[in-house]
């Protein structure tokens, strides 16, 4: 059983506007990809991604599983822009990735290799 996980660099996503970025993520996830985003999503982006996901949910695509830790400390630019970002975000199709444990510092997820 092979499981593919795509690590997406900050550079790749920074080149896109917010809308394109979230569209790209959702498109990849709908193709069955699991993404690890080096630069996490802001809370607003997470909410937007949930909204966009809900527009696409149907009998075949039940939605996403997303995991992100918000950073406690904001860096200089974050403070200036007033945005708190997740340190890292993992996102994948809900039928492929399941969180089994989560607390402040640890996320344990299993990737289901069926399909």
């Amino acid at each position: 059983m092979e499981i593919k996980v795509n690590f997406i660099s900050q550079e790749k996503l920074n080149g896109l506007g917010e809308q394109e970025k979230l569209k790209f993520i959702l498109e990849e996830v709908r193709k069955g990809q699991i993404l690890v985003l080096e630069q996490g999503l802001t809370a607003e982006e997470q909410a937007k991604l949930i909204e966009m996901t809900m527009e696409k949910v149907n009998e075949k695509f039940s939605g996403i599983e997303m995991e992100s830790y918000m950073s406690e400390k904001q860096n200089f630019w974050g403070r200036l822009l007033g945005k708190k970002r997740a340190r890292m975000t993992i996102v994948g199709p809900a039928d492929k990735i399941k969180t089994v444990y989560r607390d402040k510092d640890v996320i344990k997820a299993v990737i289901v290799g069926k399909r």
Binding site: A43, M66, M70, K84, T99
Partner: peptide, 17 residues
């Protein structure tokens, strides 16, 4: 239930923002 869920964290983050 475990409070550390993505939904809780996303809502909380949006309220803070």
């Amino acid at each position: 239930k475990n409070p550390f869920t993505q939904v809780n964290i996303t809502i909380l983050g949006n309220l803070e923002a």
